[in-house]
Amino acid sequence: MKQFGGPAAFIDRNDINTDEIIPAKYLTEITKKALAPHLLEDLHLEGQQFDPHSAVMQAAQVLITRSNFGCGSSREHAVWALEVNDINVVIGESFARIFRQNMFNCGILAVELSKADLDRLFALKGQVTVAVDLAAEKLTATSGDATVECAFSLNAFDKKLIGAGGWLAFADANY
């Protein structure tokens, strides 16, 4: 099974919508690769700097954010834009339904944690790396000597999708 985790990037805002993840003007692209340079390019964070092309974002394989991530348009381009940038896990307090389903449909992870656990992750300083133990439904974030462990639970069906490598493969085998 696919391995999940890697270096993390933090985005401290609620309600990040799919227009912000990938603006509509790129919806005319018909290859996923073409979306790569445009991930989060118009994201605006109140009172904070955000550079989608920063070294941390370039290296990131895990995004850690707040609540209702991926709201708005159903565009799966938002998930693909993450995928082609090698991001395989998004961790947040909650996700919009369609975005969450699109993640699992593509065989990658949307992990929901409590606000308290997220606060512990956001409190980590320096470069953070996240390791995901899918079987144990546990993730470990490390930064230097500091370690934060969080338990999560996946919907049973979403787990099957991850195992199958996505919904198309699962549906083709079962229906």
Partner: peptide
């Protein structure tokens, strides 16, 4: 739905 759901719907 997203594109994968749509694909499965079509198929």
């Amino acid at each position: 739905v997203g594109t994968t759901d749509l694909e499965v719907g079509i198929l």
